[in-house]
């Protein structure tokens, strides 16, 4: 399924980064680098600030202190995919329509909608209204959104939430493919992902 061409090498570095949500500072003094082809797994108890760190990296929250930077990428145009705990799926649109919407908003260039649905195992139900999907299937549809538009940075918040074992393996394979193509990823996850990639970093956040 890795039909996409590679990304230019890039690197994410954070120095002394502290994240806040409202007035609460959740994670302080974070230092990490994630190179092309690498993934950083965020671990930590609920409320430790994993989601907040992801929101900070995607630019929705301002860091409380410290700094981070994506180098080697044109930050003028969009380069981040975010998979949050909300799936951004419209129940009244079919699966294909949901994907087509994101393809035209984000600019396509990756897999075609049918191919992306096939890749996440939803090929046969492309014409179904997304409202009829189970939680796990909705999650798969949200993952397919990342495949229709290639972007070098993936920020994933509990990517395997609601997925079965087979789905977890699929997520791991998709991430591996993304890393092989030269992308990078930061993922908050409780479960160990069966990743094949060698460049796996881990960051433990304490509440």
């Amino acid at each position: 399924m890795t039909l996409r061409q590679g990304f230019d090498p890039l690197i994410l570095t954070a120095t002394g980064l502290a994240c806040r949500r409202g007035e609460r500072v959740l994670a302080e003094g974070l230092e990490f680098t994630v190179p092309s082809g690498g993934i950083l797994l965020l671990k930590g108890a609920n409320g430790a600030g994993k989601t907040t760190l992801l929101m900070t990296l995607l630019g929705a929250l301002r860091p409380a202190s410290g700094r981070f930077a994506f180098e080697g990428v044109d930050t003028e145009s969009a380069f981040i995919h975010f998979l949050g705990h909300r799936n951004a799926v419209k129940p009244h649109l079919t699966l294909a329509e949901n994907l087509a919407f994101w393809a035209s908003v984000n600019g396509g260039g990756g897999l075609s909608s049918p191919a992306a649905l096939e890749a996440v195992g939803l090929g046969p139900v492309a014409g179904l209204d997304a409202g009829y999907l189970s939680a796990g299937q909705t999650r798969r549809l949200a993952l397919a959104r990342l495949l229709v538009t290639p972007r070098p940075v993936w920020l994933l918040d509990e990517p395997t939430a609601a997925l079965d074992t087979q789905g977890e393996a699929m997520v791991a394979a998709l991430i591996d493919a993304h890393l092989t193509a030269g992308g990078l990823a930061v993922a908050a996850t409780h479960l160990p992902l069966p990743l094949r990639s060698a460049r796996v970093g881990e960051l433990r956040l304490d509440p």
């Binding site: 630019g59 995919h81 909300r86 951004a88 908003v105």
Partner: peptide, 14 residues
């Protein structure tokens, strides 16, 4: 806003 679409739209080029 509630289904997260608004946040993702902020990550587009528009």
């Amino acid at each position: 806003h509630e289904d997260g679409t608004l946040l993702l739209l902020r990550l587009s080029d528009l």
